[in-house]
Amino acid sequence: MAKIIVVTSGKGGVGKTTTSAAVGTGLALKGFKTVIIDFDVGLRNLDLIMGCERRVVYDFVNVIKQEATLNQALIKSKRNDNLFILPASQTRDKDALTQDGVETVLNELAETFDYIICDSPAGIEKGAQMALYFADAAIVVTNPEVSSVRDSDRILGILQSKSRRAERGDSPVEEQLLVTRYNPERVATGEMLSVDDITEILAIPLIGVIPESEAVLKASNQGTPVILDQESEAGQAYSDAVDRLLGNELALRFMDLPKKGFFSRLLGGK
């Protein structure tokens, strides 16, 4: 039986798709058959991050509308035989996602996959609700700033009340926190919230802290999930997060002040 994990955040631009790509790839590297579904219909991005945009023929909406079979739409990764991508449609909107349609696709995937990663769109509307509705677990991606933390809190409330598990009264969706774009230097100067501040407000278990890194932007532009760049701190931090997701206990890394602030250049555009 597959485990359905939604990667969500409420706020946009915090690193949901980067995380979906990294965690999905990480699970596949561990030998689990994994599929990543892009729920961001109309704003398709996952295929770019995964570097398979030129191979998109059919998409998620085609499958829901039974215009294509699942096997026609699934794109197999060239880097790992365990990894598949189900791309979103770029020409439709979120209304194309129907609950029954999504359920049928997920049920079919659950027969052959170990993990189904749902890459949620930003917001709390239909697209995001559809991505989290069937989830068994949630990775809540949060940046160390107040608006991102509040939006994460909001989405946690929706997981509690609007997921299938909540509606059926089953055990609640497992909630896990992933802090991305963490910059210890800016935390030290009080410009960013610390991990402790965030976990105190959200009160859910932490599965990883991804340091802010040039490697993330580079990986996105090259279409290579950052977890494959094991020389970068971000890549290593994602590997740790995947280990923790699988139940292993690891100490947090990359949270101390670096000797030189060579990431600070990235922050200029905020």
């Binding site: 709390i124 509040r150 939006d151 809190d153 909001r154 946690l156 409330g157 929706i158 509690q160 009340s161 407000i201 009160a203």
Partner: peptide, 24 residues
């Protein structure tokens, strides 16, 4: 926890919350 955007109303009763009440 009572999360941002959630509302709890105890009609005609006291309300006891064992967890936190988030901003919003």
């Amino acid at each position: 926890p009572v999360r941002s955007g959630q509302q709890v109303y105890a009609e005609g009763a006291d309300l006891v919350i064992l967890s936190q009440v988030s901003e919003g």
